[in-house]
């Protein structure tokens, strides 16, 4: 039995404010049953996996998220990133003990709230290639032409940032009062998609949706889409390794 256990690792799904048992039928990565671990006040949901790196796959990503989603039915958990395994419960306890204060602060911040995500689509000028494309294009006939292309691409990136900020300001003005925290990821160079995540208290979700509906009604040209509720994946920063 010990030899068998030695071949297994513990896969982490989420950390909770207090130990709470998962539903008896809840299955995680590769169909393994999910169980709770008491971390002396805090809790975690884990399952056993072979002690080899967990190769990501769509099925495993879905399993990970569905366990986190089940935890979200109760008090808001801190969702773990995909693929974290620890050799033993002792190792998990040590990892949690090392950053206990930061975990407690993060859990207090997400308490009673969920994450909503807005993807903002920012139009680009079709004629302007991205900076990378411009720099790599073999068709520049002269140094001057090359530099002009790079300058145009840089101008376009600045324009995209300004347009993104305008959409972001419009949305923030509408939902700002309902939002506990905000996380923003600007569009990558060449991309049209920026992501704005909001931590919204659960009782305010309907008002939050209504506020966005009003924005869409007032300004149908603004291109954004909303998804959620999610576990607060975007609000776990500052804990780190």
């Amino acid at each position: 039995m010990d030899a068998f256990r030695a071949c297994l690792a513990i896969y982490l799904y989420c950390v909770l404010r207090a130990t709470r048992e998962p539903p008896a039928t809840l299955l995680g990565i590769d169909g393994a049953p999910v169980r709770a671990v008491d971390l002396g006040g805090l809790g975690a949901w884990v399952s056993e996996v072979p002690s080899a790196p967990i190769v990501p796959s769509p099925e495993r990503a879905r399993s990970h998220d569905s366990v986190v989603r089940a935890a979200l039915e109760g008090e808001t958990p801190l969702p773990a990133r995909f693929g974290q395994t620890l050799a033993s419960e002792e190792e998990l306890r040590a990892a949690v003990a090392e950053r206990r204060a930061a975990l407690e602060t993060a859990l207090a911040r997400v308490e009673g709230a969920i994450e909503m995500t807005i993807r903002m689509l920012v139009p680009r000028s079709e004629s302007v290639p991205s900076e990378t494309t411009a720099a790599q294009s073999p068709r520049a006939r002269s140094g001057r032409e090359y530099l002009e292309r790079v300058a145009a691409a840089q101008r376009e990136e600045r324009n995209v940032l300004a347009r993104t900020q305008a959409v972001r300001d419009r949305i923030s003005a509408a939902v700002g009062g309902l939002v506990r925290a905000e996380a923003f990821a600007a569009a990558a160079p060449g991309s049209t998609l920026a992501t704005l995540s909001h931590l919204v208290p659960r009782p305010d979700i309907d008002r939050y949706r209504h506020a966005l509906l009003t924005v869409r009604h007032d300004d149908p040209a603004l291109a954004f889409m909303v998804s959620g509720p999610w576990a607060p994946y975007s609000f776990t920063e500052g804990i780190g390794t």
Binding site: P53, P58, A61, R81, G228, P229, T236
Partner: peptide
Amino acid sequence: IAPTRSHGLVDILDRVLDKGLVIAGDIKI
């Protein structure tokens, strides 16, 4: 918690692979 629609695979991958708590210094990933 009831989602407004079923969560798409792309949404899930974008989230679970790139965001979330990292607590293990020697994670086997």
